[in-house]
């Protein structure tokens, strides 16, 4: 089936990140600040789309195509690598090092670029690197393009859909006021928008495999590589706080602007809605569709 696309074996990478889980109230302080130690953790939602893209790309490649998921973070972040293995990602790698603390986007992109370079050198040149469009904790969308600049990969951001044919990526991407279809040469880095296909559920086989890996140190060595900055040959001065050109110089709480919210006290939905609509009857009538 994959031969329909007429592609070579594709060497694919997907960059993923563990972020605080803000869907639950755990770790959210009364004043609205977040206690990161207490907050739950989850796979960055955008990265689920990137993972689905990587799996679909593999299906379009030659029979020996493979995917490596790469993350950077403290040791517990291996949770998302197990998740990746469960979804059928072939190999995983975590860059973990205390010196990475307080990295901004430039320092993060440097550390990830060095990790990718180390993997490329050992496992062969890349064809595709997928990233989520952005993370939900930083919201910058900068790391993907910054890696492109460092590794000179062809850059396509905001990808909504794509196929690979004759070793060319045909992608549809979001642009201002519309969409654009582009043809991009390999090797390419694609940042995947959340309008792409949703990540399919884990297979039973994948779930069983994760359990096996969790039980076996031997399998962990094979499928879950842990590296530090020295191993990937990164310069400490370009990492973490030292390698970050920006700092947060101060933060301040936002007071309650207005603070005049009229809290309605009606006993039922009917009463509550009728209180609000009568208080704003002029406004409501002005825009009412007749």
């Amino acid at each position: 089936m994959s031969s329909n696309f007429n592609n070579k074996d594709l060497n694919i990478y997907v960059l993923i990140k563990q972020v605080p889980d803000t869907r639950s109230k755990a770790g959210v302080n009364a004043d609205g600040t977040i206690d990161r130690a207490k907050a739950g953790k989850m796979l960055n939602p955008f990265d689920a789309f990137a993972m689905e893209a990587a799996l679909n790309a593999k299906a379009m490649g030659g029979p020996n195509s493979r995917i490596t998921a790469v993350t950077m973070g403290p040791p517990p972040a291996v949770d998302i690598l197990y998740q990746a293995l469960g979804h059928g990602i072939d190999n995983t790698c975590i860059l973990s090092d205390r010196k990475l603390a307080a990295s901004d986007t430039l320092a993060t992109a440097y550390a990830l670029s060095m990790t990718l370079k180390y993997l490329f050198k050992r496992d062969g040149n890349p064809d595709l690197v997928f990233c989520g469009l952005q993370t939900t904790d930083g919201d910058t969308a900068q790391v993907g393009p910054e890696i492109c600049e460092r590794l000179d990969l062809t850059q396509v951001t905001y990808v909504e859909d794509f196929k690979i044919e004759n070793n060319i990526v045909h992608a549809r991407k979001v642009i201002e006021g519309g969409a654009m279809e582009v043809e991009a040469q390999l090797p390419a880095l694609l940042t995947v928008a959340n309008s792409y296909k949703k990540l399919k559920f884990k297979t039973l086989r994948g779930a069983k495999f994760v359990q096996e890996v969790k039980r076996s140190e031997k399998l962990q060595k094979e499928f879950l590589e842990v590296v530090d900055l020295a191993q990937v040959g990164a310069d400490d001065a370009q990492c973490g706080l030292a390698g970050s050109p920006t700092i947060v110089s101060m933060t301040w709480k936002i007071g309650t602007v207005g603070g005049n919210c009229k809290m309605h006290q009606g006993k039922s939905a009917l009463e509550l809605v009728s209180e609000v609509l009568s208080a704003e009857s002029n406004l409501v009538k002005e825009f009412l569709k007749v």
Partner: peptide
């Protein structure tokens, strides 16, 4: 991120 804090970045 997700907080009621504003941060000055420089």
């Amino acid at each position: 991120f997700g907080e009621s804090l504003k941060a000055r970045i420089l």
